[in-house]
Lab assay of single mutants.
Amino acid sequence: VTLFVALYDYEARTEDDLSAHKGEKFQILNSSEGDWWEARSLTTGETGYIPSNYVAPV
């Protein structure tokens, strides 16, 4: 399991995006899409895309 933590708040801009709150942890499901990674929030269980530069490894 690849875990990352949000460094900043991010507000989803499309229905495919996933909002993130600073300190929230995510499981990365797919990081092969360049700057946008598919992730699952460990807080809400929701999945979507987050900007890779907004997260760091735990």
Rank of each mutant, 00 (worst) to 15 (best):
S32Q: 12
T47F: 07
A56Y: 08
Y10F: 15
G45V: 02
A56L: 07
E46C: 14
L42M: 13
R40W: 06
A12L: 02
L18K: 00
I28Y: 02
L29I: 11
T47Y: 08
V1G: 13
N53T: 11
Y54L: 15
P57D: 04
T44V: 00
N30W: 08
F26K: 01
A20M: 15
V55M: 13
A6R: 00
L7E: 03
S41T: 01
V1W: 14
N30F: 08
P57I: 08
W37M: 06
A56G: 08
P51E: 02
N53W: 15
L42Q: 06
S41V: 02
E33Y: 11
Y8R: 09
W36H: 08
E24Y: 04
D9V: 05
E33S: 14
N53V: 10
W37E: 00
Y49C: 12
W37C: 05
R40V: 09
E11I: 13
F4Y: 14
F26A: 00
E15G: 13
Y49N: 07
G23W: 05
D9M: 06
Y54V: 15
D16P: 03
S41C: 06
I28W: 03
K22R: 11
V58C: 11
G48N: 01
Y49P: 02
H21G: 05
T14Q: 09
W36E: 04
T43M: 10
V5K: 03
P57T: 05
V58H: 07
I50C: 05
T14R: 14
K25I: 15
S41M: 03
L18Y: 03
A6V: 06
T47A: 06
T2M: 13
E38I: 15
Y54E: 00
D16W: 15
V58Q: 06
S31P: 10
R13L: 10
E11T: 12
S52N: 05
W36L: 11
Y49H: 07
H21Y: 14
K25S: 05
G23D: 05
T47L: 07
D16V: 13
A6M: 09
K25Y: 15
V55E: 00
Y49L: 13
A6N: 00
G23L: 03
E38C: 15
P51S: 06
L3S: 07
I28M: 04
K25H: 13
S52P: 05
W37R: 01
E15F: 10
Q27L: 14
L29E: 04
P51I: 04
Y49A: 04
D16H: 15
A12W: 04
G48W: 05
H21W: 08
E46L: 14
K25E: 08
Y49Q: 06
P51D: 05
L42D: 03
A56V: 13
G23S: 02
F26G: 00
W37G: 00
A6H: 01
S19E: 05
E38F: 15
H21R: 14
G23Q: 02
A12K: 09
D9C: 10
I28L: 06
G34Q: 12
S31V: 11
A6I: 06
L3C: 14
I28T: 01
G45H: 06
W37T: 02
G23T: 02
E24D: 09
Y54M: 15
E46V: 10
E15K: 13
Q27F: 14
P57Q: 08
E15R: 11
S52Y: 09
A12F: 03
L42P: 01
G34N: 11
A6E: 01
Y10I: 12
D16G: 15
R40K: 11
N53S: 14
G23H: 03
G45Y: 06
L3M: 10
